[in-house]
């Protein structure tokens, strides 16, 4: 009995020894793995900021760095190629442009999207009360995806949650320029800030 017990003990010791040898067989490892990182333009980035799918997407232009820009001026590069020559809003009128741009969650997590400002304005008080107002409108009135729409008074910001990966929000624009003599008297040159945060 004593001898058999001794043999088993040796076997156990050998098995344990081989495990120890296995983890200690090398002192260092050098391996190479690919890291691929692209900086994409707005349309392809993880927060996709794209022109609208329809013809009104031509009111959106891109800057020299391929960033999206709403461009309702004579400098829009789409003039002659999707935009037939118009160079600005009508005076003494309300202009509604549906689906001008869209924002899509092209990442991996649910996000809360904030956009500011929502309203832009210019008022010419020199010779007359020329008024230009531009309002961004999220097109979510008919969508039942559980979006939580939050208007933030005095912050000029809209918060939309929850945008899951693949979800997109389309935006429209309502603008008014008054009165008739507002032509060449009022204009807007500003920026929209989009903030996406994982939730």
């Amino acid at each position: 009995m004593e001898r058999r017990k001794f043999v088993l003990s040796v076997g156990a010791l050998a098995a344990g020894g081989s495990l120890t040898l296995g983890t200690g067989a090398f002192s260092s490892v050098e391996a190479e793995r690919d890291v691929a990182v692209n900086v994409a333009d707005d349309a392809s980035a993880y927060l996709g900021i794209q022109p609208g799918d329809g013809p009104n997407g031509n009111y959106v232009d891109t800057t020299a760095s391929d960033a999206l820009a709403i461009n309702l001026t004579g400098d829009n590069d789409n003039i002659g190629d999707g935009l037939a020559g118009g160079e600005g809003l009508n005076a003494n009128a309300i202009t509604g442009i549906a689906d001008i741009f869209q924002v899509q969650n092209q990442g991996t997590q649910e996000i809360e999207l904030e956009i500011a400002p929502l309203a832009f304005s210019d008022v010419d008080m020199s010779d007359f009360d020329g008024i230009l107002g531009v309002l961004l409108v999220p097109q979510i009135g008919q969508i039942d995806l559980g979006y939580d729409l939050s208007w933030e008074p005095a912050v000029n910001l809209i918060s939309i949650s929850t945008l899951s990966p693949g979800d997109e929000i389309e935006f429209s624009l309502v603008a008014f320029a008054l009165p008739e003599s507002a032509v060449d008297s009022v204009a807007i040159d500003d920026e929209i800030e989009l903030t996406a945060e994982a939730i």
Binding site: N92, A93, I94, P117, L118, A119, F120, S121, D129, I131, G133, L135, V137, G141, W151, E152, P153, A154, V155, N156, L157, I158, F176, L178, P179
Partner: peptide
């Protein structure tokens, strides 16, 4: 559903349309 008043409140501006046709 947003109204012009909502935008005025969020942007802290007031659009005076009293003398306009729109």
């Amino acid at each position: 559903t947003p109204t012009l008043s909502d935008y005025e409140e969020t942007a802290d501006v007031e659009f005076d349309l009293s003398d306009e046709e729109i």
